[in-house]
Protein backbone atom coordinates (compact mmCIF):
# COMPACT_ATOMS: atom_id res chain seq x y z
CA UNK A 1 0.00 0.00 0.00
CA UNK A 2 1.24 3.51 -0.91
CA UNK A 3 1.86 5.74 2.06
CA UNK A 4 2.10 9.47 1.37
CA UNK A 5 5.31 10.98 2.65
CA UNK A 6 5.04 13.30 5.69
CA UNK A 7 5.37 17.10 5.37
CA UNK A 8 8.59 17.04 7.34
CA UNK A 9 9.95 14.54 4.89
CA UNK A 10 9.00 16.79 1.95
CA UNK A 11 10.37 19.83 3.75
CA UNK A 12 13.68 18.05 4.21
CA UNK A 13 13.92 17.07 0.56
CA UNK A 14 12.98 20.64 -0.52
CA UNK A 15 15.41 22.23 1.91
CA UNK A 16 17.91 23.32 -0.73
CA UNK A 17 15.34 24.93 -3.00
CA UNK A 18 13.77 26.71 0.00
CA UNK A 19 17.10 27.87 1.36
CA UNK A 20 18.13 29.18 -2.03
CA UNK A 21 14.76 30.96 -2.41
CA UNK A 22 15.11 32.40 1.08
CA UNK A 23 18.61 33.68 0.28
CA UNK A 24 17.44 35.21 -3.00
CA UNK A 25 14.61 37.02 -1.20
CA UNK A 26 16.99 38.33 1.45
CA UNK A 27 19.56 39.29 -1.15
CA UNK A 28 17.26 41.26 -3.45
CA UNK A 29 15.54 42.93 -0.50
CA UNK A 30 18.79 44.05 1.11
CA UNK A 31 20.19 45.26 -2.21
CA UNK A 32 17.02 47.22 -2.96
CA UNK A 33 16.86 48.68 0.57
CA UNK A 34 20.51 49.78 0.52
CA UNK A 35 20.51 51.21 -3.00
CA UNK A 36 17.03 52.68 -2.56
CA UNK A 37 18.08 54.37 0.69
CA UNK A 38 21.12 55.85 -1.05
CA UNK A 39 18.97 57.24 -3.88
CA UNK A 40 16.31 58.33 -1.39
CA UNK A 41 18.72 60.29 0.81
CA UNK A 42 20.13 62.16 -2.19
CA UNK A 43 16.65 62.80 -3.61
CA UNK A 44 15.34 63.86 -0.18
CA UNK A 45 18.22 66.33 0.29
CA UNK A 46 17.67 67.85 -3.15
CA UNK A 47 13.91 68.05 -2.58
CA UNK A 48 14.51 69.84 0.73
CA UNK A 49 17.34 72.20 -0.14
CA UNK A 50 17.68 72.21 -3.93
CA UNK A 51 16.74 75.02 -6.26
CA UNK A 52 13.69 74.63 -8.48
CA UNK A 53 15.50 73.12 -11.48
CA UNK A 54 17.37 70.64 -9.33
CA UNK A 55 14.18 69.69 -7.53
CA UNK A 56 12.07 69.26 -10.65
CA UNK A 57 13.50 65.92 -11.92
CA UNK A 58 13.51 64.42 -8.43
CA UNK A 59 9.95 65.59 -7.79
CA UNK A 60 8.92 63.96 -11.09
CA UNK A 61 10.69 60.71 -10.14
CA UNK A 62 9.18 60.56 -6.66
CA UNK A 63 5.64 61.40 -7.76
CA UNK A 64 5.75 59.04 -10.74
CA UNK A 65 7.11 56.06 -8.82
CA UNK A 66 4.97 56.56 -5.74
CA UNK A 67 1.92 56.68 -7.95
CA UNK A 68 2.76 53.39 -9.65
CA UNK A 69 2.07 49.91 -8.24
CA UNK A 70 5.30 48.04 -7.43
CA UNK A 71 4.05 45.18 -9.53
CA UNK A 72 3.82 47.41 -12.61
CA UNK A 73 7.24 48.82 -11.78
CA UNK A 74 8.84 45.36 -11.64
CA UNK A 75 7.22 44.34 -14.94
CA UNK A 76 8.24 47.64 -16.55
CA UNK A 77 11.86 47.18 -15.54
CA UNK A 78 11.85 43.60 -16.78
CA UNK A 79 10.34 44.37 -20.20
CA UNK A 80 11.52 47.91 -20.80
CA UNK A 81 15.21 47.52 -20.00
CA UNK A 82 15.89 45.13 -22.93
CA UNK A 83 13.66 47.27 -25.19
CA UNK A 84 15.92 50.20 -24.33
CA UNK A 85 18.94 48.11 -25.24
CA UNK A 86 19.95 47.39 -21.66
CA UNK A 87 20.67 43.70 -21.18
CA UNK A 88 19.85 42.81 -17.60
CA UNK A 89 18.64 39.55 -16.16
CA UNK A 90 15.41 39.04 -14.25
CA UNK A 91 17.08 39.36 -10.84
CA UNK A 92 18.69 42.68 -11.81
CA UNK A 93 15.45 43.98 -13.32
CA UNK A 94 13.60 43.03 -10.15
CA UNK A 95 16.14 44.69 -7.88
CA UNK A 96 15.99 47.80 -10.08
CA UNK A 97 12.21 47.98 -9.73
CA UNK A 98 12.33 47.54 -5.96
CA UNK A 99 15.18 50.05 -5.67
CA UNK A 100 13.26 52.73 -7.57
CA UNK A 101 10.24 52.07 -5.36
CA UNK A 102 12.27 52.18 -2.15
CA UNK A 103 14.14 55.34 -3.25
CA UNK A 104 10.95 57.30 -3.87
CA UNK A 105 9.61 56.44 -0.43
CA UNK A 106 12.86 57.14 1.40
CA UNK A 107 13.09 60.50 -0.41
CA UNK A 108 9.85 61.64 1.16
CA UNK A 109 10.82 60.23 4.55
CA UNK A 110 14.10 62.17 4.46
CA UNK A 111 12.38 65.36 3.30
CA UNK A 112 9.73 65.06 5.99
CA UNK A 113 12.28 64.47 8.74
CA UNK A 114 14.51 67.37 7.67
CA UNK A 115 11.59 69.77 7.33
CA UNK A 116 10.28 68.79 10.75
CA UNK A 117 13.49 70.00 12.43
CA UNK A 118 13.16 73.43 14.04
CA UNK A 119 14.58 76.20 11.84
CA UNK A 120 16.72 77.31 14.74
CA UNK A 121 18.94 74.26 14.33
CA UNK A 122 20.22 75.42 10.95
CA UNK A 123 20.46 79.00 12.21
CA UNK A 124 22.47 78.03 15.28
CA UNK A 125 24.78 75.95 13.06
CA UNK A 126 25.33 78.87 10.73
CA UNK A 127 25.81 81.24 13.66
CA UNK A 128 28.85 79.31 14.89
CA UNK A 129 30.29 79.38 11.37
CA UNK A 130 29.48 75.88 10.13
CA UNK A 131 29.10 75.62 6.36
CA UNK A 132 25.90 74.19 4.90
CA UNK A 133 27.38 70.71 4.47
CA UNK A 134 28.90 70.72 7.95
CA UNK A 135 25.56 71.76 9.42
CA UNK A 136 23.90 68.98 7.48
CA UNK A 137 26.42 66.34 8.51
CA UNK A 138 26.91 67.21 12.16
CA UNK A 139 23.62 68.78 13.19
CA UNK A 140 20.66 68.14 10.90
CA UNK A 141 21.09 64.61 9.54
CA UNK A 142 21.94 63.02 12.91
CA UNK A 143 18.66 64.40 14.25
CA UNK A 144 16.66 63.64 11.10
CA UNK A 145 17.91 60.04 11.07
CA UNK A 146 16.55 59.47 14.55
CA UNK A 147 13.17 60.68 13.38
CA UNK A 148 13.30 58.66 10.17
CA UNK A 149 14.22 55.37 11.72
CA UNK A 150 10.75 53.93 12.54
CA UNK A 151 9.33 54.93 9.14
CA UNK A 152 12.40 53.64 7.36
CA UNK A 153 12.06 50.27 9.09
CA UNK A 154 8.45 50.20 7.95
CA UNK A 155 9.46 50.90 4.34
CA UNK A 156 12.13 48.22 4.50
CA UNK A 157 9.61 45.59 5.55
CA UNK A 158 7.40 46.73 2.65
CA UNK A 159 10.31 46.03 0.29
CA UNK A 160 10.74 42.52 1.68
CA UNK A 161 7.05 41.87 1.09
CA UNK A 162 7.19 43.43 -2.37
CA UNK A 163 10.12 41.17 -3.29
CA UNK A 164 7.59 38.32 -3.70
CA UNK A 165 6.48 40.08 -6.91
CA UNK A 166 9.76 39.08 -8.48
CA UNK A 167 8.32 35.58 -8.75
CA UNK A 168 6.23 36.79 -11.71
CA UNK A 169 9.30 37.62 -13.79
CA UNK A 170 10.86 34.27 -12.97
CA UNK A 171 13.22 35.11 -10.13
CA UNK A 172 13.35 32.01 -7.95
CA UNK A 173 12.90 33.87 -4.69
CA UNK A 174 11.16 32.33 -1.71
CA UNK A 175 7.61 32.53 -3.07
CA UNK A 176 8.40 31.05 -6.49
CA UNK A 177 10.51 28.29 -4.89
CA UNK A 178 7.59 27.52 -2.60
CA UNK A 179 5.15 27.39 -5.52
CA UNK A 180 7.44 25.02 -7.39
CA UNK A 181 7.62 22.73 -4.36
CA UNK A 182 3.83 22.86 -3.97
CA UNK A 183 3.42 21.93 -7.65
CA UNK A 184 5.39 18.79 -6.91
CA UNK A 185 4.02 17.85 -3.47
CA UNK A 186 0.47 19.33 -3.50
CA UNK A 187 1.03 20.39 0.12
CA UNK A 188 -0.36 23.86 -0.51
CA UNK A 189 -1.31 25.05 2.93
CA UNK A 190 1.75 23.64 4.68
CA UNK A 191 4.34 25.18 2.38
CA UNK A 192 2.58 28.56 1.99
CA UNK A 193 2.37 28.81 5.78
CA UNK A 194 6.01 27.91 6.05
CA UNK A 195 6.98 30.56 3.44
CA UNK A 196 4.89 33.10 5.31
CA UNK A 197 6.72 32.17 8.48
CA UNK A 198 10.09 32.69 6.78
CA UNK A 199 9.04 36.14 5.49
CA UNK A 200 7.92 36.98 9.01
CA UNK A 201 11.37 35.97 10.29
CA UNK A 202 13.10 38.32 7.84
CA UNK A 203 10.85 41.26 8.71
CA UNK A 204 10.95 40.57 12.42
CA UNK A 205 14.74 40.62 12.27
CA UNK A 206 14.62 44.01 10.53
CA UNK A 207 12.21 45.33 13.15
CA UNK A 208 14.37 44.07 16.01
CA UNK A 209 17.42 45.67 14.43
CA UNK A 210 15.50 48.95 14.04
CA UNK A 211 14.33 48.91 17.65
CA UNK A 212 17.84 48.12 18.83
CA UNK A 213 19.28 51.10 16.92
CA UNK A 214 16.44 53.33 18.08
CA UNK A 215 17.21 52.48 21.70
CA UNK A 216 20.93 53.03 21.23
CA UNK A 217 20.56 56.47 19.70
CA UNK A 218 17.60 57.63 21.81
CA UNK A 219 18.05 61.04 23.40
CA UNK A 220 17.26 61.73 27.02
Amino acid sequence: MYESPSWLHELWSAREALWSGFLTSVQCSILAILLGTLIGVVAGLVLTYGRFWARAPFRFYVDLIRGTPVFVLVLACFYMAPALGWQINAFQAGVLGLTLFCGSHVAEIVRGALQALPRGQMEASKAIGLTFYQALGYVLLPQAMRQMLPTWVNSSTEIVKASTLLSVIGVAELLLSTQQIIARTFMTLEFYLFAGFLFFIINYAIELLGRHIEKRVALP
Binding site: G120, S125, I128, G129, L130, Y138, P142, Q143, L219
Partner: peptide, 30 residues
Protein backbone atom coordinates in the same frame (compact mmCIF):
# COMPACT_ATOMS: atom_id res chain seq x y z
CA UNK B 1 29.55 84.42 10.77
CA UNK B 2 32.26 82.87 12.94
CA UNK B 3 33.44 86.42 13.73
CA UNK B 4 30.19 86.98 15.61
CA UNK B 5 28.56 84.79 18.22
CA UNK B 6 24.83 84.62 18.66
CA UNK B 7 22.51 83.55 21.44
CA UNK B 8 18.89 82.96 20.47
CA UNK B 9 15.56 83.37 22.18
CA UNK B 10 14.90 79.62 21.84
CA UNK B 11 18.49 78.62 22.81
CA UNK B 12 18.75 76.32 19.76
CA UNK B 13 21.14 73.90 21.42
CA UNK B 14 21.81 70.76 19.40
CA UNK B 15 19.66 68.18 21.21
CA UNK B 16 21.70 65.16 20.08
CA UNK B 17 24.93 66.49 21.58
CA UNK B 18 25.94 66.88 25.22
CA UNK B 19 26.59 70.32 26.69
CA UNK B 20 30.31 69.80 26.13
CA UNK B 21 29.85 68.58 22.55
CA UNK B 22 27.61 71.56 21.81
CA UNK B 23 30.47 73.85 22.75
CA UNK B 24 33.25 71.84 21.08
CA UNK B 25 31.50 71.36 17.71
CA UNK B 26 32.39 74.81 16.38
CA UNK B 27 35.88 74.68 17.92
CA UNK B 28 36.60 71.38 16.16
CA UNK B 29 34.93 71.94 12.80
CA UNK B 30 35.26 75.70 12.30
Amino acid sequence: RAMTGMAFQQFNLFPHLTALQNVTLGLLKV
